[in-house]
Amino acid sequence: MSEQDTTESPTEAASTIEDTNETATTDTGEDVSAKTDPIAAAPEESILEVRDLDAGYGDLQILEDVDLNVGGGEYVTIVGPNGAGKSTVMKSVFGLTTYMGGTVIFDGEDIHGLRPEDIIYKGISYVPQNDNVFPNLSVQENLEMGAYILDEVPPERLQDVYDRFPILEDRKSQNAGSMSGGQRQMVAMGRALMLDPDLLLLDEPSAGLAPDLVDEMFDRIDRINDDGTAILMVEQNAKEALRRCDRGYVLAQGQNGYVDTGDRLLADEEVRQQFLGG
């Protein structure tokens, strides 16, 4: 995959940003796939730091030299066209893809190759895009599964999730499979919040939701973030996601395209035209 596939003229792109090569990732050095604003792109202390990540499925490589970091309590989104590898980045952080090179540092420790239960133990929770509840388990049982790695379900965590999503407490005995899409999304997020993670990975939380529910969902994510949980989110609904987040990455064809604060990415003409539909 050549660098030029990603951005046709990277120096013109993100023209409002001072061009530095600090986090550029190419071996050749002849081209720069990531546009970096030193202030916006480097949080004071990264909780998650992905460097030169190559990953894919089996023999098929999807990600090439992806760099990404998330600061403690930061809200970061990854946007980009279909097939850009957005979800793959997230799955790779969680160890669900075939590792092909690079590092994934969480909390100062390389976590690549760890089993999901160990990664959860370190403080990352993941909400997949589809089929993210256990349909034949009750709401409460779904939440209990979120705390499986603990010997006992901490009652205060369960109460905390119920306080955040009161409708789940009303329906705690109902099978998750019989709930509406928006409620299921709450069950899925509640399950992921049971261990009070430091970093929450959200894969397209607005997918399949009715438009009026999408806003509510984003509000909820804002509140989770306000309470101190860092968020790494992949979103199809790119404009809204960039409006809400602290920082955004534009991913194209498995490589870093642009990175900047959400507002600046939204304002960037090149990004708008290529990725946000004008």
Binding site: L96, P128, D131, V133, F134, L137
Partner: peptide, 19 residues
Amino acid sequence: KAMRAMADNKDLALVTGIP
């Protein structure tokens, strides 16, 4: 419950931390 969860959805059981 974990057995039922795994019968429901193996991939989700894995990412939920069920061994």
